[in-house]
């Protein structure tokens, strides 16, 4: 079957509707901020914007981001090229409808391709799996927040950070401190302990798909997530970096095995507009979350 119009729907949904767990969390935080502060005013406008974008089917943010796809598929029914071609087509159509901004700039000439396609755009992560259905996850990640991502190498003498959870926490605090308001706080922080230079960054980004209210199955990481959430929100950076109680909406930590010589802490910063949705293709039935 031709999947183009289903991908159009997934991209449109992701650009225009914030996932409900993120919206709920923003509402809770808005209620907590003090009246008359830039924090309260910013969060109020953010909520208003989310509602308007959803109602009128308009992009939540003008930086509609990089299109990052994660596709799990059964190999007996599909080939990667089936998805790749349909997604490229859908991307051009949705860009033409002004629901995505042309965001692919040639690395050498600086020329914007005009339709969001180009070398590495959209960005695909394919995994063949043994289940009988297809799962397509899409993340739209803007440039301001992507610029706040960072990778540390432990030990780090300047921070007094060793190769342990205490050291990892210092990295995360430092990264959020450095970001200030530049990544559109309140942010969601994806972290990966271990791995190599690229696998670490990859898993840190995949952490952004976890629901904000989930609990890490690894008790030590669950503890670190809660502890960091509280510590980061005591920095008083606040929404947009203008001060306030809400600096982050969540911290999600994953871990990979590492080489004995390497200890990377990779951090992906996501803005409050955490645009992620999932599509499941099971036979003829297609569902979206």
């Amino acid at each position: 079957m031709d999947l183009t119009n289903h991908f159009e729907k997934l991209i449109t949904l992701t650009s225009t509707q914030l996932p409900s767990d993120v919206e709920d969390k923003l509402r809770k935080q808005m209620a907590m901020e003090e009246e008359g502060t830039p924090a309260k005013a910013s969060l109020k406008t953010i909520i208003q914007n989310i509602e308007m974008a959803r109602k009128e089917t308009l992009p939540i943010c003008q930086d509609t981001g990089a299109l990052i796809f994660y596709i799990n598929y059964p190999s007996e029914k599909y080939r990667e090229s089936d998805f790749r071609e349909a997604i490229l087509k859908a991307t051009r159509i949705v860009t033409g409808k002004s629901l995505l901004r042309p965001n692919a700039v040639d690395g050498i000439s600086g020329k914007n391709s005009g339709d969001n396609t180009g070398a590495g755009s959209p960005w695909f992560n394919f995994y063949q799996w043994d289940r009988d259905y297809v799962e397509v996850k899409l993340l739209l990640k803007g440039g301001g927040s992507e610029n706040c991502g960072i990778q540390y190498k432990l030990p780090d003498d300047t921070m007094g950070a060793g190769r342990n959870l205490q050291g990892v926490k210092k990295c995360v605090i430092d990264a959020v401190f450095r970001a200030q308001g530049e990544g559109c706080a309140p942010g969601i922080i994806g972290v990966c302990i271990g791995g190599n230079r690229d696998s670490g960054n990859k898993i840190a980004k995949e952490m952004l798909f976890r629901k904000l209210d989930d609990i890490n199955p690894e008790p030590k990481l669950a503890e670190a997530e809660t502890d960091l959430y509280n510590k980061l929100n005591s920095l008083n950076i606040g929404p947009m970096g203008l001060g306030g109680k809400t600096t982050v909406l969540g911290v999600k930590i994953g871990a990979l095995h590492r080489l004995p010589a390497c200890y990377f802490v990779s951090i992906s910063y996501m803005c409050w507009a955490c645009r992620r949705h999932t599509m499941i293709i099971k036979g003829e039935e297609i569902t979206y979350d």
Partner: peptide, 13 residues
């Protein structure tokens, strides 16, 4: 002047 980041629909109006 600081505008709220990400509130693209509100500001476009």
């Amino acid at each position: 002047f600081h505008a709220v980041g990400g509130v693209a629909v509100v500001l476009a109006k």
